[in-house]
Computed example of a mutant assay.
Amino acid sequence: MEGNAMEKVMWLVLGATVMVASLRADRSERARMVARTALGVLFLVFGAIVNAIYLVTDWESFGEFGELSQFAFVRDTWASLVAPNTGLFIGLLIAGEAAAGILVLSGGRWTQAGLVMLMAFHVGLLFFGWWLWIYAVPMLGALSLMLRAERRHEAQLADAAPTRRRRR
Rank of each mutant, 00 (worst) to 15 (best):
G66L: 04
L147T: 12
F73Y: 13
L143G: 01
Q112N: 08
A38P: 06
S28W: 05
F73S: 05
V74H: 12
T57H: 00
L157Y: 13
N51T: 12
Q70K: 08
L126S: 05
F73G: 03
M1D: 03
R168K: 07
Y54M: 10
R166W: 04
L93F: 15
S80F: 12
V74T: 08
E154V: 06
M6E: 14
N51V: 06
W110V: 12
T37L: 11
G141P: 03
N51Y: 11
V74K: 01
S61F: 06
M19F: 13
L126F: 00
W131M: 14
V20W: 07
R167Y: 11
G15K: 01
A161G: 04
G66K: 06
G114C: 08
S28A: 07
S144A: 13
A100E: 01
W131S: 06
R164A: 15
G63A: 03
F46L: 04
A160Q: 07
P84H: 07
L12W: 09
R36S: 05
A149V: 03
M10P: 03
W11I: 00
E60M: 08
L44P: 03
V82T: 06
A100M: 13
A38I: 02
R30P: 14
R109I: 02
F62V: 08
A161P: 04
A149T: 09
S80L: 15
W59H: 09
R165V: 13
F128A: 10
G40P: 00
M139L: 11
G101L: 07
L145W: 11
W78S: 04
R167P: 03
F73W: 11
A120C: 13
E2F: 13
M1T: 05
L125V: 10
A79G: 07
L105C: 00
E67P: 01
L118K: 03
D76A: 05
A16R: 05
L93P: 03
R30G: 08
M1R: 01
L115E: 02
G96A: 06
E97D: 11
Y54S: 09
M146L: 15
R109D: 07
V9T: 09
G124P: 09
L105D: 01
R148E: 08
L23N: 10
L147Y: 09
R166V: 15
A16G: 12
G107K: 07
T57K: 00
F73M: 11
Y54N: 14
A155T: 05
A158I: 10
M119L: 09
E7L: 15
G91D: 14
R148G: 14
A35G: 09
L143D: 11
H122V: 04
S106H: 00
A79N: 10
A83Q: 08
W130Y: 12
E67G: 14
T111L: 09
V34T: 07
R165I: 12
M33L: 13
A95C: 11
I94E: 07
H122F: 15
W130M: 04
L92R: 09
A142K: 06
G40L: 10
V116P: 07
M119Y: 06
A25P: 04
G141Y: 11
W78H: 02
V74G: 01
V56G: 14
D58E: 14
F73T: 10
G124M: 02
W11R: 03
G108S: 08
G47L: 05
G124V: 12
A79R: 09
D159K: 12
V137P: 13
